[in-house]
Write a protein that binds this DNA or RNA. Structure first.
Lengths: 119, 119
DNA sequence: TTTAATACATAATTTTCTTATGTATTAAAT
DNA sequence: ATTTAATACATAAGAAAATTATGTATTAAA
């Protein structure tokens, strides 16, 4: 059996926005650090979003009108809770659909058989 | 139904080497232009490898010892037929396995249901 | 009281792609 | 006959998106 420790960085490229938008769609509101931890847990450390990738992406999504945020203070520590705008909801759907289609194309191209049991 | 014309360039990033290595594994030997046309046909124009991306990647694979090539002349026109080295065979397997694993992880992360009928 | 975890941010660099450009042969269309 | 499209390679300039490194600061744990 093939054991995969962590994906080479190239693979994750181009999927970061899709991951973030989808998480926000499913969970309503999240702050940056929470996103990194959630993805790390859900993927059993296979995908670890670095802060240097995360924050610029969140800023970019905000600039493009896909997300908005509210600051929240816990004592003196600040959290920026992000939520999807209406446009962001559409973008999220489109991105996930595109990726789902991409998966099918790649499975055909790489001749990857449907697998059992894997999460 | 969702119609996908061509993937945004970000998506394909990081999969180019995997695609090339896998095609060489399945077809034995191929030349550059043939690779672009084969991928274009197999994906119904959804993935179009540009020459500016292809040739530097082939050169990089060669430099890394994953592929070798032979020149072949058809009249005065030249073709560079690439083949996998032994190392390249291993790299190809590893890359495809990694991508297959990545697909499963992303399906879980994005909550994508198994689909019927799509190629 | 030091270290680790939480929580944000940005700058320098690297990688990888797009776009543009270049050369040249061969087949097809006008 | 001659222009255009397709074949076939190559590289260089620029853009995009990540990595790596650095910075600030609070809070919890060792």
């Amino acid at each position: 059996m093939y054991i995969c420790p962590m994906y080479t960085s190239e693979l994750i490229k181009g999927t970061l926005k899709t991951i973030i938008l989808n998480l926000l769609k499913e969970r309503g509101k999240m702050y940056g650090y929470e996103i990194t931890q959630t993805v790390k847990e859900m993927t059993k450390d296979k995908i670890q979003i670095t802060e240097g990738a995360l924050y610029p992406t969140l800023h970019s999504l905000e600039k493009n009108g896909d997300v908005g945020f509210e600051k929240e203070y816990l004592g003196k520590r600040v959290r920026k809770y992000y939520t999807l705008t209406e446009q962001g909801q559409e973008t999220a759907k489109a991105k996930v659909n595109e990726f789902a289609d991409f998966i099918n194309t790649m499975k055909y191209l790489l001749d990857i058989e449907p697998k059992m049991g894997n999460a």
